[in-house]
């Protein structure tokens, strides 16, 4: 028997067309990842039963699991294609696009809602300018280490895909954006605008829509303590709600 990899890929020509499954059989190489198989299909776009087809469309860039682009659903689990080592997963490998984002084509989806959420939660530090104003505030090493982990979020969308609260009937912003609020609120200068971010997640679709299913933290490829972030923000928003009420 030839040493090959069998794949079952969900194909969809465009956002408004229906999906279909196509099967492929490509050469196997030791240590390869799933994306290598998709590259093989590009070189020879023919299905397992010999029918010519179009090359599969997918999104990828760094191939090192740091850009977040190649997120897809592989054998039922949302993850990056670049770290899906063929030798470690069951065949035929079933590959589908994420379901919580509109499909663009084949495995490519439109995640722009995630970037829009970053605008909504004020995910930046309000610096006075990029000119030389000397160093920033001193930061304790343990604060830095906490923030660094939060800051490795690559907007990949795994946490949204796995979250039961993300669905067509809900406005929930999702764990990734909430985590950004904590990231910036824990920085000494970021904390100066803490309230703006807290208010943003106390709206509809904000933190109170989290159903505490805790799926997000299980699928996060960067092991970001997303549920800790959400819990910390629960406390913050509760205090903020109370405090701003007293202020009135």
């Amino acid at each position: 028997m030839a040493d090959t990899v069998r794949l079952k890929i969900k194909r969809q020509d465009g956002p408004d067309t229906s999906a279909r499954w196509e099967e492929f059989e490509v050469p196997h190489r030791k240590g390869e990842n799933l994306l290598t198989c998709l590259m093989d299909i590009q070189k020879n776009p023919v299905t397992a039963d010999g029918k010519p087809t179009t090359p599969v469309v997918w999104e990828s860039n760094c191939l090192e699991e740091v850009c977040g682009a190649c997120t897809m659903v592989i054998n039922g689990r949302v993850r990056q294609g670049c770290t899906a080592l063929v030798d470690k997963i069951e065949q035929p490998i079933k590959v589908e696009p994420m379901t919580k984002f509109p499909v663009v084509r084949d495995l490519m989806v439109d995640r722009s809602r995630m970037f829009e959420s970053l605008k909504k939660v004020h995910a930046w530090i309000d610096i006075d300018g990029t000119h030389d104003l000397g160093p920033g505030p001193r930061v304790a090493p343990d604060v830095q280490q906490t923030r660094y982990v939060l800051s490795t979020c690559m907007t990949c969308g795994c946490c949204l895909e796995a979250c039961p609260q993300i669905n067509p009937r809900s406005q929930f912003i999702g764990a990734a954006a909430l985590n950004q609020v904590r990231l910036f609120n824990e920085h000494p200068s970021g904390a100066l605008h803490k309230d703006v971010r807290l208010e943003a997640i106390m709206d509809d679709g904000g933190i109170s829509d989290c159903g505490n299913a805790q799926n997000c933290v299980q699928v996060c490829p960067k092991n970001i303590p997303l549920t800790d972030s959400i819990a910390a923000l629960y406390r913050e928003t509760t205090w903020y709600g109370l405090f701003s009420w007293l202020k009135r």
């Binding site: 930046w124 160093p135 001193r138 830095q144």
Partner: peptide, 22 residues
């Protein structure tokens, strides 16, 4: 040096010394 300080002010979590410096 000014470029590193600019990033510091933008909130980049640079690794720190015990004294809290970059």
């Amino acid at each position: 040096p000014a470029i590193i300080y600019m990033f510091d002010r933008m909130g980049v979590p640079f690794s720190r010394t015990a004294e809290g410096l970059i």
